[in-house]
């Protein structure tokens, strides 16, 4: 049955505005990175390239990630809502999920940013299909976990 989260309703104004503003920043950042390199700046692809032997493309990716940590760190330290963090399940489950995410994004050629923002934004049909698949898989996984009595953190 579909019910609306009452916590959401209480903070309707700023809650959705922050989500939209954050999305705008992510889109702008992706655009600047694309225009500055000619490389589609999906996070999984950028990160995986850093794991390879250092080459010509390693340094700018490290600079990008240094910026990412600085930007996130500043917001965590200054905006209460940004520091919200409710982990799901234990560290063992997170380790398994981490392997799945790393493996899946490389086999599938992108993640939420690479396929979901950049790929679709460039008009790629592949990225649209990939995004629909990982969204559906995420929804199905959460549904199954809920029915196995692992409710989402509130």
């Amino acid at each position: 049955m579909w019910t609306f989260n009452p916590q959401v309703a209480r903070h309707l104004d700023s809650y959705f505005l922050r989500a939209l503003a954050g999305g705008f920043l992510i889109g702008l950042a992706s655009l600047v990175a694309l225009l500055s390199t000619g490389v589609i700046p999906g996070i999984s692809g950028l990160f995986s390239r850093i794991l390879r032997k250092p080459g010509a493309g390693t340094a700018w990716r490290l600079v990008f990630f240094a910026g990412l940590l600085a930007g996130a760190g500043l917001l965590f330290a200054t905006v209460d809502s940004a520091a919200a963090y409710r982990p799901a399940h234990g560290l063992v489950a997170l380790a398994v999920a981490g392997v799945l995410v790393g493996f899946g994004t490389r086999l599938g050629g992108g993640c939420t940013s690479g396929h979901g923002v950049c790929g679709i934004g460039l008009g790629s049909r592949t990225s649209l299909v990939a995004t629909l698949v990982f969204m559906a898989a995420g929804i199905a996984t959460v549904w199954m976990l809920v029915h196995l009595n692992f409710p989402p953190p509130r």
């Binding site: 922050r18 989500a19 503003a21 954050g22 999305g23 705008f24 920043l25 992510i26 702008l28 950042a29 992706s30 600047v32 990175a33 500055s36 700046p41 996070i43 600079v63 990008f64 990630f65 240094a66 910026g67 990412l68 940590l69 600085a70 930007g71 996130a72 760190g73 500043l74 917001l75 965590f76 905006v79 809502s81 940004a82 520091a83 919200a84």
Partner: peptide
Amino acid sequence: AGFLFGAGLALSG
């Protein structure tokens, strides 16, 4: 770009 990306992720939740 990295800074804006990280800030956007944190701001958006």
